[in-house]
Design a binder for these strands. Sequence first.
DNA 1: CCCGGAAACAACGTATACGTTATTGCCCAT
DNA 2: ATGGGCAATAACGTATACGTTGTTTCCGGG
Lengths: 235, 235
Amino acid sequence: MARRADQSLAQVAARPSRRSLVDEAYRTLRERILNNELPPGHQMLEEEAALQLRMSRTPVREALIRLEKEGLVRFVPRRGVQIVPLSARDLREINEMLSCLEAAAAERLASRRLPPEELAQLDAAIAAMDAALAADDMDAWSEADYRFHCLLLELCDNRRLREVARMFLDQAHRFRRKSMSLREKPVYSTVNHAAVVEAIRRGDPQTAVEIHRSHKRRWTRELDDLISRMPDVEE
Amino acid sequence: MARRADQSLAQVAARPSRRSLVDEAYRTLRERILNNELPPGHQMLEEEAALQLRMSRTPVREALIRLEKEGLVRFVPRRGVQIVPLSARDLREINEMLSCLEAAAAERLASRRLPPEELAQLDAAIAAMDAALAADDMDAWSEADYRFHCLLLELCDNRRLREVARMFLDQAHRFRRKSMSLREKPVYSTVNHAAVVEAIRRGDPQTAVEIHRSHKRRWTRELDDLISRMPDVEE
DNA sequence: CCCGGAAACAACGTATACGTTATTGCCCAT
DNA sequence: ATGGGCAATAACGTATACGTTGTTTCCGGG
């Protein structure tokens, strides 16, 4: 690798990225993990990663520590870093976390008066899901669903809730992309989201939680079924 | 600082700590933050911290990144690292997260059959709280309470739930130590915990959640009150 | 006395150097 | 052929060097 001169040039040349290298490494790796470009179980050395990202090990390491805390990678003593594999158990844990966090979010939203334009945002997100479903575009549906959930979390202004839940949404997202093909069309999910929003609109936390709860039961069963049909998910 | 020779000596001399320096830095700092030895709002430079811990900036930085992800410190651009201050808002957020996570834990525990010796552990933890309360030793009570909550989380074998909740328990712990003196004796809390364990013993998730929920309502009010009486907690 | 700008400085981000140590593979004795 | 130990090596943890950049300070003009 070229040296010395690069250190200064890097700041100037890589103009588009105003951010730090740590940040770039973090974003890039996260991105690649989320679309399974770096698949679960994959291993790489810090050095390799650094080489690919065209930076030294230092910023890569710092990015990896963050990703580890988010549950996307694991350090394996002498074998580098591993994209965490999704075992059946992991999936169930993630499902459980999301259930509980999103129920809390929904309840909270229903409890406080939500301004109309925020409700409109939720409606829009659902509309996007409907559209994708109608067009039979599962990738788009998946994205729209992700956005809906994020939105739900954004709106209930609890930063911690937002960040923790986002973390698990991410982990779930990796799995969803793989499992999409095996699932039936998620008609139920979409209807369900609409019902939750309806409860929020009416300011009815009780119902919001109730809907979410029954949705969880149904989805948990479906998840178990899905897991059993995914060949590369070890129990 | 002495050099070169130290690098090798450090490994040998510091025998008691078999772990890495990163780990040592992490533990030490976390410890100090949790007992407010490093109080909320306190700032320090990476260099200072490194000097105090007798190591170079590298391991300290890595430890700090972890602590940041756990919500205990914040990086403030040119002023070093700050022990995150606990604003009223933060405290409410933390309270909300813990409510939701612990309710989930309690529900889960009540759902699965808990072996008798695990129930015994819970009973023991409650007994410790009672004892501390009787002896009017609030520090001991605080510790016992912390242990009870940790135990509850340990037992419901969901690693993610455990780790995330532990994170918030830690944050709450910092506050509790300061607020303890302002509170009335937490008789209610102790009784409540016992009731939750009772529901778990009976395998009654419905009730477990219900108790937790009403406890939350009560405690949330008390928290608001407490916040208003804590001078150094800015809204 | 007060303000704006430039020089000095401080802190950080990043690169690089290097010792330690687990792992791998090789060789020899059985 | 096989197990055990030794040497080479690879990966990592940590220290250190250094350029960049925000902040502070100090000075001269208003």
